[in-house]
Amino acid sequence: MTEEIIIAGFGGQGVLSMGKILAYSGIMQNQEVSWMPSYGPEMRGGTANVTVVLSDERISSPIINSYDTAIILNQQSMDKFVSTVKPGGLLIYDPNGIIHHPERKDINIYTIEASEAAGKLGMMKIFNMIVLGGFLKLKPLIQPEFIHKGLEKSLPVRHHKMIPENEKAIDIGKDLIKAVQLV
């Protein structure tokens, strides 16, 4: 099994940390992982993205041009990455702020109203975990116990009291994910 994922959105949405939690959880589940961020001036107030690869085998390239899954959290990222999803692959996006919805007919498309849900709860910080929950519902690549361990490893100890809320957010995401198009 190899899963190549791009997560893309605004800086501050927790894109990089979502990737890190996913990657650390992969390690806890004894998988090979790589995490390659966009870095530099484009991160400040602009778009941020990270490529995460989970695999049972040694990962060759951490840099890829086409993905099994794209998780898209703003319009700029939609414009940039919609064409990079492999045919038959998976696109998950939060429709909040999306003006031009994806028109590809050869990929599976799901939406997740994560920013709305996080806003209602008054906890924007767990927005990224809601999205992660949606992804894990569709592709249960990592068992919940290892997600728990991944959270413990990724978050500084002083934030460990937030772990139950993060896990709850993952469960919320699992209920929120909606199919738009299946191929």
């Binding site: 990657a23 090979e32 992982v33 790589s34 995490w35 390659m36 961020p37 870095y39 990962i59 951490p62």
Partner: peptide, 10 residues
């Protein structure tokens, strides 16, 4: 290089 410096792995 920037790839090896910035990427995370096990």
């Amino acid at each position: 290089d920037g790839v090896i410096g910035q990427m995370m792995e096990k």
